[in-house]
C-alpha cells in the first residue's frame, strides 16, 4: 500500500500538539487539544486510503482500479459529526463552569484531597459533634465490630 508521507507528517504534528494541549488544566485548552488531536487522527484514517485516485462515482467508463477508497472518508465523516457534538457539549461545560466559578480550570477531586489529608494527618476536618470521628481510633476492629459512638460533646458550639 502506498501512503502519502505528507498526510502522515501532518497527522503526527497535529496529534503531538493536541496531546500537549490536553495535558493542561483549562478546559477550553483541553478542548482545543482534543480538536487538534482529532484532526490529526482523521488525517491518519485518511492515510489508510492508500494512493489517491479519482472520486468514487461509478459512472460508466470509470475504471474501478483508479477509484479512491471511499470507506475511510465515510469513517472520517462519522467522526467529524460526532466531534461536532462533543465539542458543543464541552464548550457548554466550560461556559457553565465559568459562570459558576469564574474560570474553566478543572480542579482536583475534593474527596481525593480529603482522603489524602486524613492519611497524612496534616489537617483534620473540623470534628462533627454529633458523629463518631473515625480518625480518633484507628483500630480496624472498631469498624468491623461496630463500636458505639461516644456521647455527643456539647462544648463545640460556643462560636
Amino acid at each position: 500500500m502506498t501512503v502519502s508521507a505528507t498526510l502522515l507528517a501532518c497527522a503526527v504534528v497535529l496529534t503531538s500538539a493536541g496531546v500537549v494541549l490536553i495535558h493542561t488544566r483549562a478546559l477550553t485548552r483541553v478542548l482545543i487539544g482534543i480538536i487538534v488531536c482529532g484532526n490529526g487522527i482523521n488525517l491518519f484514517v485518511l492515510a489508510a486510503t492508500g494512493r489517491a485516485g479519482v472520486p468514487p462515482l461509478l459512472y460508466p467508463g470509470v475504471s474501478h482500479a483508479r477509484v479512491t477508497d471511499p470507506l475511510p472518508q465515510a469513517i472520517i465523516l462519522t467522526a467529524v459529526v460526532i466531534s461536532l457534538a462533543t465539542t458543543a457539549f464541552t464548550l457548554a461545560i466550560a461556559y457553565r463552569s465559568g459562570q459558576l466559578t469564574g474560570s474553566d480550570f478543572v480542579p482536583d477531586d475534593t474527596e481525593d484531597h480529603r482522603v489524602l489529608q486524613r492519611t497524612l494527618h496534616t489537617r483534620r476536618p473540623r470534628p462533627n459533634p454529633h458523629a463518631r470521628d473515625r480518625t480518633t481510633d484507628d483500630s480496624l476492629w472498631n469498624d468491623i465490630l461496630g463500636t458505639d459512638p461516644p456521647p455527643p460533646r456539647q462544648d463545640d458550639d460556643t462560636a
Binding site: 488531536c37 475511510p72 464541552t90
Partner: peptide, 19 residues
C-alpha cells in the same frame, strides 16, 4: 475528556486495522 481521548485512540485503532 477521558472518554474523548479514548475515542481518539479507538479511531486510530480502526485506521490501523483498516489499513
Amino acid at each position: 475528556v477521558v472518554s474523548l481521548v479514548s475515542s481518539l485512540v479507538f479511531l486510530a485503532a480502526i485506521a490501523v486495522a483498516y489499513a
